[in-house]
Simulated scan of single mutants.
Amino acid sequence: MLKRTLMALTGVVLIWAGLTGPSNAATADIAALDITAINYNSYGADSVTNNTEYVEVKNTTADPVNVANLLVQDAWARGRDKTTGCNTFRLAPGALPVETGATADQLPAGAVLRLHMGKGTAGIDRSGVRHVYRSMPDVCGYHSNVFNNGPSGSNRWAAWDTAWITLGTGSKSKGYNFSFGYVAK
Rank of each mutant, 00 (worst) to 15 (best):
K3F: 12
A8Y: 02
V13Y: 07
A17Y: 08
L19S: 05
P22I: 02
P22C: 05
P22R: 06
N41W: 11
N41I: 08
A45G: 04
T52L: 07
E53Y: 09
Y54C: 04
D63W: 14
P64C: 07
V67E: 02
V72S: 05
Q73L: 10
W76N: 10
R78I: 02
D81E: 14
K82S: 14
G85S: 01
N87G: 00
F89N: 00
L91C: 06
G94M: 02
G94W: 04
A95C: 01
L96M: 06
V98C: 00
A102E: 08
D105Y: 00
Q106A: 09
A109S: 14
A111L: 03
V112H: 01
M117S: 04
G118I: 01
G128L: 03
G128M: 01
R134Q: 07
M136Q: 15
M136S: 09
M136F: 11
P137G: 13
D138I: 10
D138E: 12
N145C: 13
V146E: 01
F147K: 03
S152G: 14
G153V: 03
R156A: 12
A158H: 10
W164K: 00
L167G: 03
T169P: 05
S171L: 08
K172E: 01
S173A: 12
S173M: 13
S173N: 12
K174R: 15
Y176Q: 06
Y176F: 14
N177T: 13
G181H: 08
G181K: 10
Y182H: 14
V183Q: 08
